[in-house]
């Protein structure tokens, strides 16, 4: 009898797991999103209202921009939400995307130890700051994961005319934003972070904001609808409903209303990106 009871509870548990398949809502889509929008809590906050209104369930797979675009290119996502202008342009040029619309922005910033022996604290010129980091040989933690943040960091190094790879102070960790912040906190290192992840990050220890305000540090989030020919298997209809909601009055208001510790994490703002930009 006892074994019987055990088996019964296992069966109930499995039935509960499989329930989403049996009673699946009319529709669900996979949104390949950059990690910052999900890990900061934004998508978890705003998407329930969308699902309640439309009945479309959104399954968010949070990945770095490079990986999110690769997932969509393989046909494994229905909609993309990312933040790397160059990688997005390549994705569009390859014919994967149909439309590309900016739906929110904030900024990137350099964070580092309070002691700040590089003396970059308070600077606004991101490139000049990187030169000082390099001259001081201060530890710099790099994502190295092909994400949007990683791509911007590499552009800034190029602009500074510095090749950091292989330098003893340059730590290429091949990890997410959280992993980079955890390591910077542990090693008293400098790193580049998006503001959403930074404001919602709970293990800052001695890390403080050092550099922000450079026009090159603006962080733009774009939603990309997939091409109906290249991605005929994707659920493009409901994906369009979500894309339109994010760029519409309701979605924009929800994005702007997301506040942590008194600060707005993502500023709403809609702009359709013309082809070729």
């Amino acid at each position: 009898m006892r074994t019987y009871g055990n088996s019964a509870s296992v069966v109930v548990l499995l039935a509960w797991l499989l329930l989403p398949f049996a009673t699946a809502r009319a529709e669900s889509i996979v949104l390949a999103s950059t990690t910052s929008l999900d890990n900061s809590g934004l998508l978890g906050r705003i998407l329930p209202a969308f699902t309640a209104k439309t009945g479309i369930e959104v399954r968010v797979v949070a990945q770095g921009t490079g990986q999110a675009l690769a997932t969509a290119a393989r046909g494994d996502a229905d909609l993309v939400l990312v933040h790397d202008p160059e990688a997005e342009a390549a994705f569009m040029a390859a014919g994967h995307g149909k439309t590309r619309v900016e739906i929110a922005w904030n900024d990137f910033l350099f964070v580092g130890p309070q002691s700040d022996r590089t003396a970059i604290g308070g600077m606004t010129d991101a490139v000049a700051a990187l030169r000082l980091v390099s001259e001081a040989g201060a530890i710099f933690v790099s994502r190295g994961d092909n994400s949007g943040t990683d791509a911007l960091e590499k552009r800034l190094w190029r602009a500074a005319g510095i090749v950091p790879a292989g330098q003893p102070w340059y730590r290429d960790i091949g990890g997410g934003m959280g992993a980079a912040l955890n390591m910077a906190a542990a090693l008293d290192g400098v790193t580049l972070t998006d503001r959403g992840t930074w404001l919602s990050f709970a293990n800052r220890r001695g890390l403080v904001e050092l550099v922000h305000g450079d026009a090159r540090l603006i962080n733009r989030y774009r939603v990309i609808e997939l091409d109906s020919v290249r991605h005929a298997g994707a659920k493009l209809g409901p994906a369009h409903v979500l894309a339109a909601w994010l760029a519409g009055a309701e979605g924009q208001a929800a994005i702007g209303a997301f506040v942590l510790g008194g600060e707005v994490l993502f500023h709403p703002g809609v702009r359709e990106i013309p082809p070729g930009e």
């Binding site: 959280g178 992993a179 955890n182 709970a202 293990n203």
Partner: peptide
Amino acid sequence: TLETSKGNL
């Protein structure tokens, strides 16, 4: 994994 990446150790 997720909470570690968010710094919620």
